[in-house]
Design a protein around this nucleic acid. Sequence first.
DNA 1: CGACGCATTGATTGGATTCAACTAAGGTGG
DNA 2: CCACCTTAGTTGAATCCAATCAATGCGTCG
Lengths: 240, 240
Amino acid sequence: VGASALVTKLQAFVDLDRHDLAQLEQLSRQAGTVKAKHDLISEGDPAEHVHLMIDGWAARYKLLSNGKRQIMAFLLPGDFCDLHVALLGQMDHGIIALTECKVAYVESSDLDDLIFNNDRLTRALWWVTLQDEAVLRRWVVNVGRRDAYERIAHIFCEIHARMTLIGRVDDDRLTLPLTQDELADATGLTAVHTNRTLQRLRQENLIEIGGGSLRILDVNALREAGGFDPKYLHVQQCGR
Amino acid sequence: VGASALVTKLQAFVDLDRHDLAQLEQLSRQAGTVKAKHDLISEGDPAEHVHLMIDGWAARYKLLSNGKRQIMAFLLPGDFCDLHVALLGQMDHGIIALTECKVAYVESSDLDDLIFNNDRLTRALWWVTLQDEAVLRRWVVNVGRRDAYERIAHIFCEIHARMTLIGRVDDDRLTLPLTQDELADATGLTAVHTNRTLQRLRQENLIEIGGGSLRILDVNALREAGGFDPKYLHVQQCGR
DNA sequence: CGACGCATTGATTGGATTCAACTAAGGTGG
DNA sequence: CCACCTTAGTTGAATCCAATCAATGCGTCG
């Protein structure tokens, strides 16, 4: 059950048989826990094994010399933190646990097994990589050309879509363990401005947020507000 | 000679033998030309073959409903436009030729051959993918947490580093066929503000720019100004 | 209880946008 | 060959979105 979020996600793309499932389960043999607000991987860390999120939220971030921080991705259950880092010498950015996280430490050799011997899973992992890249591109658009209101709306839509993909949304309600500070660092805003923008979204009855959870009251309206187009996640059109 | 920029780039990472070179040369068998300001690939285009830049500049971009445009990457000779798009149904963004471009149309089967039969080249292509992703992450940081002055300085450093990698920099001087509009769309600024920022960089004797070329007068000072750290391109530490 | 993290609010400042005009360079056609 | 038009770059002035500075509320945990 360690890799269940990953399995759920992959099944949106391909049908997995018993053997695939067993092989995926193998990956999370070795797992550990990282406390909230602690680095899961730090900048400069050597690439030892690949990290797979089992449970909890983490963030890919970069610290600037002027003290500012930019979050470049939120990592949810089923996400790989550093899928291909095996090729590289060291991390050029850090990953911090936003909540307590359960993480699997995947041996590179296990991944190699999977990539060389299982075409279906290889394709599925490629798809995951593509999706991560597509999300990253959207983030550039988000911080580059959208105002605060659109940015927050868009990021909520993305989280909603991704959480849906791993089966963690119920009635448009989901766990959202982000502080306004963290949300600000992901959207390129200040915490103060993020706060005011959240208030506006609440006021307009688009969302309910607080106490570690988010409820989207009007998905279509929120997507409209954020200029969100779900097709970049490539869920629909990928045949089974 | 079609794939020469790609070859130069890959050789920063691995040593290629005669056979590798021949195989790379194969890729650019079929090539064509795209006029400046024309779409090389449009949003929504089906994935037919993979596009490899041979010569010229292009940009990966996204148009928003409000008419704004965000450029998410500059594509230089040796860059793949859509390396893995074969898996996906259609493009979720467009690619426009900024100058007249020479482009190779690579058959997916040729790529498969290469990936399944040549470990060294496979690793090298992975490395290219990783580098593209690392650049993308820096762009998020750039537009998210840097001011106009830092953004422009940083992007010039990146271009300088990448052009160096394909052997197109001479005495810190390089061809830069970007309009201020395009630069603005890449940095998330307006053309007007980009213009004023360029003037400041000139005034401070960091760069000479104009007439389609850029000269960096003080590389270290420009890197300092942009908070640029070349290590994310993973050139140095990747053993041969 | 006091300290700390997080959310909220007000007042002020400033970086960047917007709108608009104008120059310079290049290409085209009559 | 010059009048015309387009494209790119530059400049000024007014405006605005978001940042900054600052203070307060509020709950939790040691």
